[in-house]
Structures are given as C-alpha cells and as structure tokens.
Design a protein around this nucleic acid. Sequence first.
DNA 1: CCTACCGATCGGTAGG
DNA 2: CCTACCGATCGGTAGG
Lengths: 209, 209
Amino acid sequence: MRRTSRPRSERETASVYSVRDAALTLFARRGFHGTALSEIAEALQIRTPSLYNHMTSKQGLLAEIVTTTSHQVWEDYRHAVAEQSTIEDQIRAAVYVYALRHATHPREAMVVNRDIAALEEPTLSEVLELRRRHEHALRGLVEQGIDDGIFDRQPASLVSFAVLEMCVSIARWYRPDGEFAPEEIARQYGEFALRMARGDRTTSRPSGL
Amino acid sequence: MRRTSRPRSERETASVYSVRDAALTLFARRGFHGTALSEIAEALQIRTPSLYNHMTSKQGLLAEIVTTTSHQVWEDYRHAVAEQSTIEDQIRAAVYVYALRHATHPREAMVVNRDIAALEEPTLSEVLELRRRHEHALRGLVEQGIDDGIFDRQPASLVSFAVLEMCVSIARWYRPDGEFAPEEIARQYGEFALRMARGDRTTSRPSGL
DNA sequence: CCTACCGATCGGTAGG
DNA sequence: CCTACCGATCGGTAGG
C-alpha cells in the first residue's frame, strides 16, 4: 500500500499518486515554500521536468491536497453528526472523527494548517469557506447545548476554536509507533471537548432526565 | 509605540528594531520561506542591501525572533507557577500567561509555531529544548494533580499537549478589535485546562478538605 | 521519461 | 544608506 519514497524498480514508473504522496511528505516536513520541485523529483528518482507528466504545477499539487482534505473533513463531520441524536453525542462524534483524521493523516493536516496562505484564488476562498462552515457547525452545537441548559453559559466561539485547534495539533506530535492508538486519542479528545463545554456542571444529563 | 509599516520620514532611518518588526509581520503572514528580503526592505522603504546594516542574515532574523520568544515563554511559566501554591492555581496561572502571550504577541506565536523547522543548528536544538522543558513542566503539574487525587486518572501527556496547542491557536484567530480582550481569553483558557484535567470530577477540592 | 534551457528571483557581497 | 553585481536556484517550457 505505502509507496512513499519507495524507489522505482523494474518498469515501474511515477504516477499521479506517487507524486502527490512525495509532495505531501515534503510539504509537511519543510512547508510549501520550503520545498523545491527538484526535491520531489529526487524522492521519486526522476528529473524535475518529468514531474509535469503527473501534475499541472506546484500550486496545483498544493490545491489538490488542501481541497481534498478540506472536503473530507466536512463530510466526516456531516456523517458523524447525522448518526447521533443528542447534542453531547454529536459533539463527541464530531470531535472524534476530526481528531482521528489528524492522527491518521498527519501530513495532510500539517499542510492544510500551515500552507493555506500559499493557496491562490479561487481555491483559497473555497477552502476557507469549508473551514468556516465546519467551525460554525460545531459552534452551533455548543450554542444549542448552552441553550438547552446542559452546558455552561460561556462564549461558544472560544470553545469551538479551542476544541478544533487542539485536534489539529495532534498532527504535530502523533507518531504511529507512539504510546497511543489513533482511536484512543480521538476518544480522549472527544471527552476533553465535552468537559470544556460542560464547564462546572456534572457529567449527568439536564435536570429533566 | 507601534512602528510597524510606518514609512520613514525626515531624517528617521531604519533600525534593528524596525527591521525585526517588519520581518515579524511578513514571516507571520507568509512564512519564513515565503518572505523575500526584498519585501522586508520594501516595507521599510529602503533597498535590500541596506537591511544588512541592521541584521546579520535572514536566518539570523528568524533565530532572534524564535529564541527570544521561546525564552520569554519559559520565563513566563516559571514566574507564574512560582507565585501559586496549589496545583490547580499553578496550572491556571501557567495556562493564563501562555494564552495571554499568544493573544498579545500573535505574530511571534505564528512564526514560532510554523517556521521552527526552518531554523539551523544550534538554534534549533536550543529552541526545541526550551519547548520540551515547558511541555514537561506542565505535564508534571498534571501528573502531580492526578497523584494527589484532584484530577482524573488519564494520560497526562495528552492533557498537556492539548492544552498548550489550544493556546497556540489563539494566534490564528485573535484580532485586537475582536469580541474578547486578551485577559478574558486567557482566563477562559485557564478554566478550559482545569476542566480537561479534572475530568468527570467536580470543581471542589479533594475529599480531605 | 529525458536533456537543454528559459527568465525571474533568491540571499548576499563589493565598494563607496 | 546606495548602485552594481554575484552565483545559485527557482518553477516551468521546448522538443523529442
């Protein structure tokens, strides 16, 4: 499955996938502007001009990585929330899938969160809109919980920002051979989110139940 | 006070401070590799070679920004914790000053957290060591609280990573003309941290008291 | 997939 | 603080 930095052998040639994969690794490590196309080519053991058989431009490579990931994040969210019925379960699920993605796709997460400013229009606006939608949706859940009386009265935007960004940071320190499995981390972060939202309340459901 | 992007006038000339300040603004916006020295010079309305009267190199500019900030973060932490006597108050204070710094110095925070990989040795190792020390110190407080029975039994490293990174993210969205003052944000994040550490326990002190 | 090559721009230096 | 200039490297194209 993993073709990253595997040197080509026999008649195997570079592909759209392998170029994207090598770019992902290098963009994540050095940043978009810190990565030269010659480095991507070198990782694939081909010459720089040959890359253009598998991509349109360096910018196009970035756009593809960021837009694909951003759309997946939004789809993750929609599906996770749709399967739950209570606000608490929806938030737990939304944070779970978001945290999980950052542990299982740390390279994509690094690039999305560091190199968005390097995107050109109209891709930049498209991505910012998807992120805004995601953040507002989570914030809406927190606001709903506050209105329902199950969460503390507090600025919902601070909760949603803090929750999303603590998930993003997983990509900075997660290692596949580390102490925790992605699912453990995701579960724990789901709990963190609920604790932050609940505030000084107890774990139990609102007084009516 | 604020000299950023103020054009020079009369006999006023560029200074070490103004070069550092212009670099800070541009590094924060476009990243270290995404910023050209010619852009810094343009912001100061001088020619690129003239920058070298006020700096040693582009790399030196980055090193100065990152090391100064990293040392200040560690000093903030030491002073904040030294003034408190309980674990809860120490964590609250440590998170308060860290969050506050990210709201009051968003440019420094952006650069430190995005362009560390662009540092050369030995600066890179020095900065990583300071950050490691900070993270381990906060983690130690969480572990102490767990041992004392005031916090949930849980992986202390997940708590400390999540807390620190949610503070870092303040630099991404904070705007001086926004809804919340830095002190309000910092206070709220201090509470978030304690809620995460406490887990399903109530706010009250351990059973003994 | 390659070699050969393009103009542009990079960080930085010489010398005043 | 400037002009003039350096070698290196950038993303990308021509043409096969």
